[in-house]
Each structure stands twice: as structure tokens, then as C-alpha cells.
Design a protein around this nucleic acid. Sequence first.
DNA 1: CGGTATCCAAAGTGATACTG
DNA 2: CAGTATCACTTTGGATACCG
Lengths: 94, 94
Amino acid sequence: MDLLSRKYVIEVVCVVGALGPVRYGEIESAFGEVSTSTLSTRLDELTDAGLLMRERYAEIPPRVEYDLTDEGTELCELLKPLLRWVENRDDTEG
Amino acid sequence: MDLLSRKYVIEVVCVVGALGPVRYGEIESAFGEVSTSTLSTRLDELTDAGLLMRERYAEIPPRVEYDLTDEGTELCELLKPLLRWVENRDDTEG
DNA sequence: CGGTATCCAAAGTGATACTG
DNA sequence: CAGTATCACTTTGGATACCG
């Protein structure tokens, strides 16, 4: 699956994994620099791929929460060490 | 590093890791469907990032071998389970 | 054999505005 | 709040031809 090669995908999976059930706005804040459309698309793709679940609450104001599915959790476990390694490397070379 | 998000990068790292010192043509064959320019660029980026080493032999005909650096090997170890998971998943859903 | 240079098409991404 | 729709820009990837 080259979905992994989409921008922010790895980070999104890890962010959702770390923040548990998390709202759209929180994910957006966690990045700070991603357009609504891109993040929305990514969330959609991940949900579609069975990696994320979207829970929609019929409230006012509306609330939507994202969380990892079992498969998403599996992937997240694989991704975390990768992300740590990359960040560690960035520090070292910067 | 979003180099990881480039097409074929994960696969290239794993292929080089699996085939040991490997020649350009062999890598190309391992994919079968990647243009010279793209593969060449990828190899270049990875070498530049310190993940690959390029050994050039002054022979006729020319021979060039690629291999993982220590860091490349580290990354490869992180990537392998990921790749296996993805392939396994593809099988299941296909 | 092992690339590089060039040009082109396609896809991805972002900004913005608007809806429920 | 949580998106969707639209549109233009930027980046990527592919094909081809040529060089060492």
C-alpha cells in the first residue's frame, strides 16, 4: 500500500494513536501546517483503508472523533519506532 | 525525513538490504517498472542522505555497486516488518 | 553498463470560501 | 465545529535520448 507514501500519513496514524479518540481540530492543531483539504482527504483515505474509525456525535456543536482500528493500531506500533528513528536522526544531523 | 514518502524508497532500501552489494541493473530488474530517471534519482537521494553507499569500479564494462550504510541498515531493519505487514494485508484484502 | 539531461504529464497539496 | 468543493500551484514521476 503506497498510501504510506502520502504526506502526513505516518504522522497522522501516530498522532491518533497517541491521542486516543481525538477530534478533528486536535489533529489539525497537532500539525499546525496542513490544509483542511489535505488533512481531510488523508483522514478519509485512512478511514477508507480500515485504519481509522470515525465516530460522529449528533450534538450541537457537532463533534467527531477519530480513533485507530485494530489494524491501525498494529500499523502504529510498526510506525512508532520508525518515526522515533527518523526524528532522532534529524536531531543528530541538524 | 519525508524522503520516506518518495515512491519506491522503502522498497529500494529493502531490496538493497536483501541483495547485499547490488548492481544498478539488478535493482532495476527487481522492480521491473520504474523509469531510469526515477530510480536513479532515488538512488542518488538515498546516497546523499547517507543511507546508501555507491562503489564505483573502473572496469570495462563499468560496474557500480550499491550497499546500505550502517544507518541504512538500521532503517532497513525498521522497514522490513512494515513491508511484511503491508504485503500480508494486501494478500488478505485482495 | 550505468547513468545524466531534458521535457512532459500527472498527481498531490494548499488556500479559500461555503455548508450542515 | 467539521468538514466539502473548487481551482491553481508545486512537486513527482515517466519517457526518451544521449554521454562516459
